[in-house]
Simulated assay, not measured.
Amino acid sequence: MKLDASASGVFPIAPTPFHADGRIDEASIDRLIERYLAAGADGVTVLGILGEAPKLEPEESLAITTRFIEGFGARPVIVGVSAPGFAAMRSLAHAAMERGAAGVMIAPLPSLRTDEQIVGYFRQAVEAIGADIPFVLQDYPLTLTVQMTPSVIRRIVEENPSCVMLKHEDWPGLEKISALRAFQKEGSMRELSILTGNGGLFLDFEMERGADGAMTGYAFPEMLTAVVRLQKEGRRDDAHDLFDAHLPLLRYEQQPGVGLAVRKYVLMRRGTLACDAQRRPGSTLSATARAEVDYLLRRLDQRSERLASWLAAS
Protein backbone atom coordinates (compact mmCIF):
# COMPACT_ATOMS: atom_id res chain seq x y z
CA MET A 1 0.00 0.00 0.00
CA LYS A 2 1.52 3.30 -1.10
CA LEU A 3 1.00 6.55 0.75
CA ASP A 4 -1.34 9.10 -0.82
CA ALA A 5 -2.78 12.53 -0.06
CA SER A 6 -5.77 11.07 1.80
CA ALA A 7 -3.57 9.87 4.69
CA SER A 8 -4.73 11.07 8.09
CA GLY A 9 -4.59 10.24 11.77
CA VAL A 10 -1.49 9.65 13.89
CA PHE A 11 1.83 8.36 12.56
CA PRO A 12 4.16 8.28 15.58
CA ILE A 13 7.81 9.11 14.97
CA ALA A 14 9.61 6.11 16.41
CA PRO A 15 12.83 6.51 18.40
CA THR A 16 15.53 3.93 17.84
CA PRO A 17 15.98 1.84 20.99
CA PHE A 18 19.55 1.02 22.00
CA HIS A 19 21.14 -1.09 24.70
CA ALA A 20 23.54 0.73 27.02
CA ASP A 21 26.46 -0.45 24.89
CA GLY A 22 24.98 1.05 21.71
CA ARG A 23 23.54 -2.11 20.17
CA ILE A 24 20.05 -1.93 18.69
CA ASP A 25 17.41 -3.30 21.06
CA GLU A 26 15.04 -5.39 18.92
CA ALA A 27 12.82 -6.40 21.85
CA SER A 28 12.15 -2.74 22.63
CA ILE A 29 11.29 -2.13 18.98
CA ASP A 30 8.65 -4.82 19.28
CA ARG A 31 7.23 -3.22 22.42
CA LEU A 32 7.14 0.16 20.66
CA ILE A 33 5.13 -1.40 17.86
CA GLU A 34 2.73 -2.96 20.37
CA ARG A 35 2.24 0.38 22.17
CA TYR A 36 1.64 2.30 18.95
CA LEU A 37 -0.89 -0.22 17.69
CA ALA A 38 -2.65 -0.36 21.06
CA ALA A 39 -2.87 3.45 21.01
CA GLY A 40 -4.65 3.34 17.66
CA ALA A 41 -1.84 4.62 15.45
CA ASP A 42 -2.79 4.81 11.78
CA GLY A 43 0.80 4.30 10.66
CA VAL A 44 4.35 4.98 11.82
CA THR A 45 7.44 6.87 10.70
CA VAL A 46 10.93 5.48 11.28
CA LEU A 47 14.45 6.89 10.87
CA GLY A 48 13.39 10.46 11.49
CA ILE A 49 15.58 13.13 13.06
CA LEU A 50 14.81 11.93 16.60
CA GLY A 51 15.23 8.34 15.40
CA GLU A 52 19.00 9.01 15.40
CA ALA A 53 19.14 7.94 11.77
CA PRO A 54 22.57 9.50 11.04
CA LYS A 55 24.11 7.27 13.73
CA LEU A 56 23.00 4.03 12.04
CA GLU A 57 24.84 1.80 9.62
CA PRO A 58 22.96 1.23 6.32
CA GLU A 59 22.19 -2.39 7.19
CA GLU A 60 20.89 -1.31 10.61
CA SER A 61 18.56 1.24 9.02
CA LEU A 62 17.13 -1.39 6.73
CA ALA A 63 16.77 -3.94 9.53
CA ILE A 64 14.83 -1.45 11.68
CA THR A 65 12.64 -0.52 8.71
CA THR A 66 11.88 -4.16 7.96
CA ARG A 67 10.97 -4.92 11.59
CA PHE A 68 8.46 -2.05 11.69
CA ILE A 69 6.96 -3.00 8.31
CA GLU A 70 6.44 -6.56 9.50
CA GLY A 71 5.06 -5.43 12.85
CA PHE A 72 2.61 -2.89 11.41
CA GLY A 73 1.14 -5.30 8.89
CA ALA A 74 -1.31 -3.50 6.62
CA ARG A 75 -0.75 -0.09 8.22
CA PRO A 76 1.62 2.25 6.38
CA VAL A 77 5.24 2.73 7.38
CA ILE A 78 7.07 5.89 6.25
CA VAL A 79 10.86 5.80 6.18
CA GLY A 80 13.10 8.82 6.61
CA VAL A 81 15.69 8.75 3.84
CA SER A 82 17.26 12.20 4.18
CA ALA A 83 20.98 12.14 3.48
CA PRO A 84 23.76 14.53 2.45
CA GLY A 85 23.95 12.87 -0.96
CA PHE A 86 21.36 11.46 -3.34
CA ALA A 87 23.11 8.09 -3.75
CA ALA A 88 22.46 7.09 -0.13
CA MET A 89 18.93 8.52 -0.33
CA ARG A 90 18.16 6.52 -3.46
CA SER A 91 19.59 3.29 -2.04
CA LEU A 92 17.57 3.39 1.21
CA ALA A 93 14.40 4.59 -0.51
CA HIS A 94 14.45 1.75 -3.03
CA ALA A 95 15.35 -0.87 -0.43
CA ALA A 96 12.59 0.32 1.93
CA MET A 97 9.95 0.33 -0.80
CA GLU A 98 10.96 -3.14 -1.93
CA ARG A 99 10.31 -4.38 1.61
CA GLY A 100 6.86 -2.84 1.75
CA ALA A 101 7.23 0.75 2.96
CA ALA A 102 4.35 3.07 2.03
CA GLY A 103 6.56 6.06 1.27
CA VAL A 104 9.61 8.03 2.33
CA MET A 105 10.27 11.31 4.12
CA ILE A 106 12.76 13.87 2.81
CA ALA A 107 14.08 16.92 4.68
CA PRO A 108 15.92 19.80 2.99
CA LEU A 109 19.66 20.19 3.41
CA PRO A 110 20.45 22.84 6.06
CA SER A 111 22.60 24.71 3.51
CA LEU A 112 19.60 25.65 1.35
CA ARG A 113 18.71 29.32 1.57
CA THR A 114 16.87 30.72 -1.45
CA ASP A 115 13.47 29.64 -2.70
CA GLU A 116 15.01 28.42 -5.95
CA GLN A 117 17.56 26.32 -4.11
CA ILE A 118 14.84 24.69 -2.02
CA VAL A 119 12.54 23.95 -4.96
CA GLY A 120 15.47 22.72 -7.03
CA TYR A 121 16.65 20.40 -4.28
CA PHE A 122 13.36 18.55 -4.08
CA ARG A 123 13.17 18.37 -7.86
CA GLN A 124 16.56 16.64 -7.85
CA ALA A 125 15.60 14.40 -4.94
CA VAL A 126 12.57 13.13 -6.88
CA GLU A 127 14.74 12.54 -9.93
CA ALA A 128 17.12 10.54 -7.73
CA ILE A 129 14.64 8.24 -6.00
CA GLY A 130 12.08 8.07 -8.80
CA ALA A 131 8.75 9.79 -9.30
CA ASP A 132 6.91 6.56 -8.44
CA ILE A 133 7.87 6.73 -4.75
CA PRO A 134 5.47 8.84 -2.63
CA PHE A 135 7.27 11.23 -0.35
CA VAL A 136 6.63 13.37 2.70
CA LEU A 137 8.05 16.90 2.64
CA GLN A 138 9.52 17.68 6.05
CA ASP A 139 9.32 21.35 7.05
CA TYR A 140 11.29 21.75 10.28
CA PRO A 141 13.03 25.15 10.25
CA LEU A 142 13.85 25.18 13.97
CA THR A 143 16.31 22.31 13.50
CA LEU A 144 17.10 22.40 9.79
CA THR A 145 17.29 26.24 9.53
CA VAL A 146 15.56 26.14 6.13
CA GLN A 147 12.61 28.51 5.78
CA MET A 148 9.89 27.30 3.40
CA THR A 149 7.06 29.74 2.82
CA PRO A 150 3.59 28.46 1.90
CA SER A 151 4.24 29.54 -1.68
CA VAL A 152 7.45 27.49 -1.84
CA ILE A 153 5.66 24.45 -0.43
CA ARG A 154 2.94 24.93 -3.05
CA ARG A 155 5.57 25.01 -5.82
CA ILE A 156 7.15 21.78 -4.56
CA VAL A 157 3.76 20.08 -4.33
CA GLU A 158 2.63 21.22 -7.76
CA GLU A 159 5.92 20.35 -9.48
CA ASN A 160 6.16 16.91 -7.89
CA PRO A 161 3.01 14.76 -7.97
CA SER A 162 4.79 12.21 -5.75
CA CYS A 163 4.73 14.73 -2.87
CA VAL A 164 1.62 13.58 -1.04
CA MET A 165 2.17 14.78 2.53
CA LEU A 166 3.65 17.67 4.47
CA LYS A 167 5.19 17.08 7.87
CA HIS A 168 4.53 20.51 9.29
CA GLU A 169 6.88 21.56 12.08
CA ASP A 170 7.19 25.30 11.68
CA TRP A 171 6.91 27.33 14.87
CA PRO A 172 4.83 29.43 14.93
CA GLY A 173 3.07 27.70 12.09
CA LEU A 174 -0.69 27.90 12.49
CA GLU A 175 -0.99 30.57 9.82
CA LYS A 176 1.04 28.39 7.43
CA ILE A 177 -1.52 25.60 7.72
CA SER A 178 -4.33 28.07 7.07
CA ALA A 179 -2.51 29.45 4.02
CA LEU A 180 -1.96 26.00 2.52
CA ARG A 181 -5.60 25.03 3.03
CA ALA A 182 -6.61 28.33 1.41
CA PHE A 183 -4.50 27.42 -1.63
CA GLN A 184 -6.40 24.14 -1.89
CA LYS A 185 -9.76 25.85 -1.49
CA GLU A 186 -9.04 28.32 -4.28
CA GLY A 187 -7.74 25.53 -6.51
CA SER A 188 -4.11 26.70 -6.79
CA MET A 189 -2.74 23.64 -4.98
CA ARG A 190 -3.86 20.04 -5.18
CA GLU A 191 -4.90 17.94 -2.21
CA LEU A 192 -2.15 17.40 0.36
CA SER A 193 -2.12 15.52 3.63
CA ILE A 194 -0.76 17.61 6.51
CA LEU A 195 0.51 15.89 9.65
CA THR A 196 2.11 17.99 12.37
CA GLY A 197 5.18 17.54 14.57
CA ASN A 198 6.91 19.61 17.27
CA GLY A 199 6.20 16.91 19.82
CA GLY A 200 2.48 17.64 19.49
CA LEU A 201 2.94 20.97 21.27
CA PHE A 202 0.40 22.78 19.07
CA LEU A 203 -1.77 19.84 18.03
CA ASP A 204 -4.89 21.20 19.72
CA PHE A 205 -5.13 24.20 17.41
CA GLU A 206 -3.35 22.65 14.44
CA MET A 207 -6.28 20.27 14.01
CA GLU A 208 -8.63 23.23 13.99
CA ARG A 209 -6.55 24.96 11.32
CA GLY A 210 -6.88 22.01 8.96
CA ALA A 211 -4.22 19.47 9.89
CA ASP A 212 -5.11 15.84 9.18
CA GLY A 213 -3.35 14.48 12.23
CA ALA A 214 0.05 14.20 13.90
CA MET A 215 3.45 12.76 13.08
CA THR A 216 5.44 13.13 16.24
CA GLY A 217 7.06 11.04 18.94
CA TYR A 218 5.43 12.20 22.18
CA ALA A 219 5.71 9.31 24.63
CA PHE A 220 1.91 9.09 25.14
CA PRO A 221 0.68 8.24 21.62
CA GLU A 222 -2.75 7.46 23.05
CA MET A 223 -3.15 11.17 23.85
CA LEU A 224 -2.31 12.12 20.27
CA THR A 225 -4.80 9.67 18.78
CA ALA A 226 -7.50 10.73 21.24
CA VAL A 227 -7.06 14.46 20.55
CA VAL A 228 -7.18 13.86 16.79
CA ARG A 229 -10.31 11.72 17.16
CA LEU A 230 -12.07 14.16 19.48
CA GLN A 231 -11.37 17.10 17.15
CA LYS A 232 -12.68 15.15 14.16
CA GLU A 233 -15.82 14.35 16.17
CA GLY A 234 -16.32 18.05 16.90
CA ARG A 235 -15.68 17.63 20.64
CA ARG A 236 -13.47 20.69 20.89
CA ASP A 237 -13.57 21.25 24.65
CA ASP A 238 -12.93 17.57 25.38
CA ALA A 239 -9.94 17.60 23.03
CA HIS A 240 -8.48 20.69 24.71
CA ASP A 241 -9.09 19.31 28.21
CA LEU A 242 -7.18 16.14 27.37
CA PHE A 243 -4.42 18.08 25.65
CA ASP A 244 -4.09 20.50 28.58
CA ALA A 245 -3.50 17.62 31.00
CA HIS A 246 -0.39 16.65 29.00
CA LEU A 247 0.85 20.17 28.29
CA PRO A 248 3.38 20.42 31.17
CA LEU A 249 5.15 17.26 30.00
CA LEU A 250 4.89 18.29 26.34
CA ARG A 251 6.52 21.62 27.20
CA TYR A 252 9.30 19.97 29.18
CA GLU A 253 10.05 17.57 26.36
CA GLN A 254 10.40 20.41 23.85
CA GLN A 255 13.51 21.86 25.47
CA PRO A 256 16.20 22.11 22.79
CA GLY A 257 18.96 19.56 23.19
CA VAL A 258 17.28 17.27 25.72
CA GLY A 259 13.98 16.43 24.02
CA LEU A 260 15.03 12.96 22.91
CA ALA A 261 16.55 12.20 26.31
CA VAL A 262 13.25 13.12 27.99
CA ARG A 263 11.23 11.11 25.48
CA LYS A 264 13.35 7.99 25.87
CA TYR A 265 13.32 8.29 29.65
CA VAL A 266 9.53 8.51 29.71
CA LEU A 267 9.22 5.53 27.37
CA MET A 268 11.55 3.60 29.67
CA ARG A 269 9.49 4.57 32.71
CA ARG A 270 6.38 3.38 30.88
CA GLY A 271 7.99 -0.02 30.27
CA THR A 272 8.31 0.35 26.51
CA LEU A 273 12.07 0.80 26.26
CA ALA A 274 14.43 -1.32 28.32
CA CYS A 275 16.99 1.48 28.32
CA ASP A 276 16.91 5.21 27.59
CA ALA A 277 20.38 5.23 26.03
CA GLN A 278 21.22 7.19 22.90
CA ARG A 279 23.97 6.14 20.55
CA ARG A 280 26.95 8.48 20.88
CA PRO A 281 27.07 11.39 20.57
CA GLY A 282 23.94 11.90 22.62
CA SER A 283 22.54 13.77 25.58
CA THR A 284 21.63 12.45 29.02
CA LEU A 285 19.39 13.72 31.78
CA SER A 286 20.81 14.82 35.10
CA ALA A 287 19.44 13.34 38.30
CA THR A 288 17.56 16.58 38.89
CA ALA A 289 15.98 16.49 35.43
CA ARG A 290 14.89 12.88 35.94
CA ALA A 291 13.26 13.82 39.23
CA GLU A 292 11.41 16.66 37.49
CA VAL A 293 10.11 14.31 34.79
CA ASP A 294 9.05 11.82 37.47
CA TYR A 295 7.11 14.61 39.18
CA LEU A 296 5.38 15.53 35.92
CA LEU A 297 4.48 11.88 35.30
CA ARG A 298 2.91 11.57 38.76
CA ARG A 299 0.83 14.69 38.20
CA LEU A 300 -0.19 13.47 34.77
CA ASP A 301 -1.38 10.18 36.24
CA GLN A 302 -3.55 12.02 38.75
CA ARG A 303 -5.02 14.34 36.15
CA SER A 304 -5.57 11.57 33.61
CA GLU A 305 -7.60 9.49 36.05
CA ARG A 306 -9.92 12.41 36.82
CA LEU A 307 -10.16 13.39 33.17
CA ALA A 308 -10.91 9.83 32.02
CA SER A 309 -13.80 9.62 34.48
CA TRP A 310 -15.15 12.97 33.34
CA LEU A 311 -14.92 12.15 29.65
CA ALA A 312 -16.60 8.80 30.19
CA ALA A 313 -19.46 10.52 31.99
CA SER A 314 -19.84 13.12 29.24
Rank of each mutant, 00 (worst) to 15 (best):
L3D: 04
L3G: 08
P17H: 07
P17K: 04
E26M: 10
E26A: 10
S28W: 01
I29Y: 00
Y36P: 01
A39K: 06
A39V: 10
A39C: 08
G40V: 05
G43K: 05
V44L: 06
G48R: 05
K55L: 14
P58L: 12
E59S: 14
L62N: 08
A63W: 06
I64V: 14
I64L: 12
F68I: 03
I69P: 00
G71C: 13
V77A: 05
A83K: 03
A83Q: 06
G85P: 02
G85W: 11
A87S: 15
S91F: 12
A95K: 08
G100P: 00
A102N: 01
G103C: 03
G103A: 06
V104N: 03
A107S: 13
A107E: 04
P110R: 06
S111H: 12
T114I: 03
R123W: 08
R123K: 13
A131K: 08
D139H: 04
Y140C: 07
Y140T: 13
L144T: 12
M148I: 08
M148C: 09
T149P: 00
T149R: 10
P150G: 10
R154S: 11
V164N: 04
V164P: 00
M165I: 08
H168N: 02
D170C: 12
L174E: 06
E175N: 12
E175I: 15
L180I: 12
A182L: 10
A182V: 05
Q184I: 04
K185L: 15
K185A: 15
E186S: 14
G187T: 11
R190K: 10
R190I: 07
R190Q: 04
R190W: 09
S193I: 04
F202S: 09
E206G: 02
R209Q: 11
D212S: 13
G217V: 04
Y218P: 02
Y218R: 06
A226I: 10
K232E: 14
D237I: 15
D244Q: 14
D244A: 14
H246C: 10
P248Y: 05
L250Y: 09
E253N: 15
Q254S: 15
Q254L: 13
L260T: 07
V262K: 00
K264M: 07
G271Y: 06
L273C: 13
R280D: 15
T284K: 10
T284P: 01
S286T: 14
T288S: 13
A289Y: 01
A289E: 11
A291F: 04
V293S: 01
V293W: 00
L296Q: 03
S304G: 13
L307R: 03
W310E: 15
W310S: 13
S314T: 13
